[in-house]
Simulated scan of single mutants.
Amino acid sequence: MSEVVLIIIYNHKYDKNIEILEQIYKDRFSNIYHLIPFYTGEKKNVIPVYESSYNFQGYVSQGFKTYFKEEYKHYFFVADDLILNPIINETNYSQHLHLKSKTSFVPETIGLHERGEFWTHVVKAFNWNVNLPGVEAKNELPDYATALQLFSNFGLEIKPLTYLQLYKKQEFPGLAKIKKFQSYYSWKKTLIENKNKEFHLSYPLISSYSDVFVISADSIKQFIHYCGVFASTGLFVEIAIPTAIVLSADEIVIEKDLELKGGALWTPEQCEILDKYDRKLELLLNDFPEKLLYLHPIKLSKWNTAL
């Protein structure tokens, strides 16, 4: 039996993608599950989940008892709009991802203080409250000092945030010149007053692109527990998942340690890599960029998916 299970995470109820993704992966992975919000169908390997896509770590927790098996060594999670390099399969995934039995994978581990100026999810992380009313979650996480030590074990630092990371640089379109000057002056004064102020997180948190990650069998139970805690308290997924990995993993590998690198396509220039495929999935799979671990996003509804 295969030692890995592929678990495909859907942000939305795209049932039509089930068969397409089965076609893509069925010859490469013997064990496949789909986590789909509000699924009402009959397929045995499709697990209905009930959570916001902004907190899809909750999907992982809710589906756990269905996809868990003692014989699995790794749990390989991918988004439904992410296409893994076709060379990766259940027999060689550990070589490509440099995974030993106790190793987990996440694309990156970026401290929130390293995120540069304003990112709305840094603000939400700063305001995140484990003591959310109606959720008794505080004692379900390691205490601050223990969490800090776990971060330190991986060489990760938790540093304070700056004012400009939490308060967006102000612009004043449409205001009359005098009003614009007054508003700008007021904002600049506030900035100067807070220039050297340090803003400390209430709990150690890390960030990462999270549309692909792998969890070792040794870590999976603790990992899904922390994912559930973070989902119930509303922590954004790209902070929740990497933080849960740091808190639960014995060893972590990230993309910079690999020969294959990620292919996240966010700008028009980055998307040009897809031009030669003419939105034909078969062409992409037959001529996948050989140095890329994955391509994301690939919105299958916009592609010719005949294989």
Rank of each mutant, 00 (worst) to 15 (best):
D80P: 02
K256Y: 11
E70C: 00
F77R: 08
E114N: 02
T103F: 04
W187M: 02
K276F: 01
L205T: 09
D250H: 14
N153C: 05
R115W: 09
G134W: 01
N286P: 02
A244T: 03
I215T: 04
Y72N: 13
L6T: 07
V49L: 09
A176W: 14
L82R: 03
P133L: 14
T120C: 14
Y277S: 10
I88H: 04
A145D: 10
P289G: 01
L175K: 03
S207D: 07
I298N: 14
L235F: 07
T103K: 01
V49R: 06
H113T: 00
N131V: 00
I192Y: 13
G155Y: 12
F223S: 04
S301T: 15
N89M: 01
K280F: 09
K291V: 13
G111Y: 09
T120H: 15
K69Q: 09
E255Q: 14
E140P: 01
K138E: 13
Y93A: 08
G263M: 04
I192E: 15
P142C: 00
I83H: 03
M1R: 07
S208Q: 04
E272A: 06
L285K: 01
M1C: 11
S101A: 05
I88D: 00
Y10I: 11
Y50N: 13
L166C: 10
G41P: 14
I87Y: 03
G58S: 08
A147N: 02
K195W: 06
H113K: 03
V253W: 09
W266M: 12
